[in-house]
């Protein structure tokens, strides 16, 4: 671990702590939803970070196909993995919020469904990376990464139209509808904190991916020398 990484970790920890204070104590209690609304301070930042990471995955995949650098492939892998992990949080905290507010765990609402489909797409990306072997993995994965990202707007359009034909649950209060200024402050602090955490994870995973590749090559070289 480098000094820079340690310093970055320390700042992230402080930010997370401050975000915690913001979310649990400083932000006012929502009038109709009560404390349940505070889940929002984790839910929304995680969603934004996840979407951003999927975008990074797309950029890195395209970059890999153009330039074929190991770094681009490692970044694509790291962004997809951390993105799926954040997206998982979004998909679990969402229902936990929905249960007391809507009275149901899950509904096939436009945003929920598109997030679920997005999660499925990037899980399939990781599955492909897991099952593919040899030096062709980066190309295959990059192709799938581009397919996945191109699919996102189509998924969004399809599901929005799909939902307009079906009954929607009554959204009491509605997230984002009457969001107070102080609530936005709490959202932004937590967004900053969790974005930093994501950078830490991606950074570590990126370096590990490169180290794994270097190790593989060193093994092959060592075997060549032994013969």
């Amino acid at each position: 671990m480098t000094k820079l990484y340690k310093a970055f970790s320390a700042v992230t920890a402080l930010l997370l702590l401050y975000g915690f204070c913001q979310a649990w104590y400083i932000a006012p209690t929502e009038a109709t939803m009560g404390n349940v609304q505070r889940i929002f301070y984790y839910h929304l930042p995680s969603a934004w970070v996840a979407f951003l990471l999927f975008f990074v995955n797309f950029l890195a995949s395209a970059w890999y196909l153009i330039r074929r650098t190991d770094g681009a492939d490692a970044l694509a892998l790291a962004a997809a993995e951390v993105g799926v992990s954040f997206c998982t949080i979004v998909l679990i905290t969402g229902p936990i919020w929905a249960r007391p507010i809507w009275g149901i765990w899950w509904t096939w609402d436009a945003r929920l469904t598109s997030t679920l489909v997005l999660w499925l797409i990037y899980v399939s990306y990781l599955v492909l990376r897991h099952y593919a072997t040899g030096g062709q993995v980066p190309v295959l994965a990059a192709a799938l990464g581009i397919f996945g990202f191109v699919d996102v707007p189509i998924v969004y359009m399809a599901i929005r139209w799909f939902r307009t034909q079906h009954p929607q649950p009554v959204i009491g209060g509605g997230q984002g509808s009457g969001l107070d200024h102080t609530m936005w402050v709490a959202v932004l602090w937590n967004l900053a904190a969790f974005a930093m955490l994501a950078v830490l994870f991606v950074w570590a995973r990126y370096r590990q991916a490169l180290a794994e590749r270097a190790l593989e090559e060193a093994y092959i070289q060592a075997e060549g020398e032994a013969q």
Binding site: V36, R38, P100
Partner: peptide
């Protein structure tokens, strides 16, 4: 709604975030 009535849900969500 009583503001603290949903605390269990908030704790659960918080635990999920850090568990993942």
């Amino acid at each position: 709604m009583n503001p603290s009535s949903g605390n269990a849900y908030l704790y659960a969500a918080y635990i999920v975030v850090w568990a993942v």
